[in-house]
Amino acid sequence: MTTEASSMQVRQAQEFNLGRVDTFPERKVVARDVGGRTIGVLRRGDTVHAFANHCPHHGAPMCRAQVAGTMRPSAPNQYDYALDGLVVKCPWHAYEFDVRSGEAMGGIIRGRLFIYHSEVRDGEAFVQFRRAALPAR
C-alpha cells in the first residue's frame, strides 16, 4: 500500500474516463486497465466505486472479488444481512471490504482496501489515483 500511495501522489491530478456508468453491470467487479494499472470497478445504481487490485491482507487480486453483502454484528444466532452489492469479498480468504470506505467488515483487520476517488458526471464515470474521501457515517 505504501508504494502505491507514494506513486499516487505523482499522478494525483490525472483523471481517467471509465465510460458510461450504465455500461457497467451491478453486482460484478469489472477490471479496467487505466493509467498503467489495473483497478476494480463496481457499479451501484448511479455511482461507481473503484478500488485497488490488491487485498491488504495477502495481496490477492481484488478484481476477482465476489460482490456480496455482509452480516452485521448481531445477537447470538441472528443473521442480519446488509450492504448488499456494496461489499467485495477477497477471492482468497474471503475478507470482506466495504467498497465505499475500503474498511474491512466487522473490524477483522485494520488495513483498508485502497479506494480510488471516483465520480460520475453526466452519466460518465471518472477515476483519479488518489484515495477517496471517507463517506460520512
Binding site: 455482509t70 452480516m71 441472528q78 443473521y79 480468504h93 474471503a94 475478507y95 467488515m105 477483522i108
Partner: peptide, 15 residues
C-alpha cells in the same frame, strides 16, 4: 478463522 468466516458467526464481535 474468525477473520475468514466472521459472517458465519456475526455475533462474535471481538476477535
Amino acid at each position: 478463522e474468525w477473520r475468514n468466516f466472521r459472517s458465519d458467526m456475526p455475533w462474535v464481535k471481538d476477535k
